[in-house]
């Protein structure tokens, strides 16, 4: 009796697990497959030769990873420098047409990526920004702005008015109250939004391709050319490397982000 009740649930769980872990398992398998030819179901030879090749000092993977992290860090900084004041203004200063402004930040996401980035690439080309790290950073920062502003605005909105007023009442000017009360209380949400921006930049492909390639080779671009060139092993290993920061930061976000901050997104 109880087996009948549990069976569908177990099947469903296995199915979900398959969806989530299936592709990762396939990647893992490819990364250690030294030879794997059709129609074999499994590789015929296993080994770490490709791992060794990727991690060799002259291999491009490590260099690309470094570049990707550097770009992601810069993009995050640039993005937060705009997003924090913007989010604060949206959440706390009673701006007219608040909804419209929030929508405006969302707008770039509403258009298909391709035409937007092709146009950006054209403009950047005339400005000499194409193929530069700065160009990629700028386009990543713009892309991350929507997450950053929305999440940070929710974090600021979750700070109680009275907590800030209490600081003013105790003798703090507007700026001191912001620095000692508003910002520390909104910090978890802001950190979460920064992490989202960082991760978005890290595995962003389309914009990097049009603005950066071939001079700026981020890890996703390397992955693309490896996969396009038929080198499934290098592509798989690159993909696995990209997975690491995502998992680490997701764990951090989970710890940081209170449910009530997320619930306030877009309010």
């Amino acid at each position: 009796m109880s087996a009948w009740r549990w069976l569908p649930r177990i099947l469903l769980l296995v199915l979900f697990a398959g969806f989530i872990f299936g592709p990762v398992a396939n990647l893992l398998l490819w990364s250690v497959a030294e030879s794997w030819y059709w129609p074999n179901r499994l590789p015929s030879q296993y080994g770490f030769r490709y791992w060794e090749r990727v991690f060799r000092p002259e291999g491009q993977a490590m260099e690309s990873l470094g570049l990707s992290i550097w770009i992601a860090a810069l993009a995050t900084l640039a993005c937060m420098a705009v997003a924090i004041p913007a989010a604060w203004a949206l959440a706390r200063a009673r701006l007219p047409m608040r909804g419209l402004i929030l929508l405006l930040f969302l707008l770039p996401q509403a258009f298909p990526n391709m035409p937007v980035y092709i146009n950006i690439a054209r403009v950047f080309f005339s400005l000499g920004l194409n193929g530069t790290v700065l160009g990629v950073v700028l386009v990543h920062a713009a892309h991350g702005l929507v997450y950053a502003v929305w999440i940070a605005a929710a974090a600021f909105a979750a700070v109680e008015d009275d907590a800030v007023l209490a600081a003013r009442n105790m003798g703090a000017g507007a700026l001191t109250a912001f620095r000692t009360v508003t910002l520390p209380l909104a910090a978890p949400g802001i950190a979460a939004s920064a992490i989202f921006v960082f991760l978005e930049s890290l595995d962003e492909f389309t914009a990097s391709f049009f603005v950066g390639a071939p001079d700026v080779r981020t890890l996703p671009l390397l992955l693309y050319s490896a996969a396009a060139g038929g080198n499934m092993q290098v592509a798989a290993i690159t993909a696995l490397i990209l997975l690491v920061p995502s998992i680490v930061f997701m764990a951090v976000v989970q710890r940081f982000l209170r449910a009530d901050v997320l619930a306030g997104v877009g309010k």
Partner: peptide
């Protein structure tokens, strides 16, 4: 502005700063 008035308020919600210890809350002013 509020900070230049010198009066001190006890809020209905207390409005204590959750990220500061009791001592830092009291010592803030």
């Amino acid at each position: 502005p509020p900070e230049a008035r010198g009066n001190a308020m006890v809020f209905q919600s207390y409005a204590l700063w959750p990220h500061m210890t009791v001592a830092r809350n009291i010592g803030y002013g």
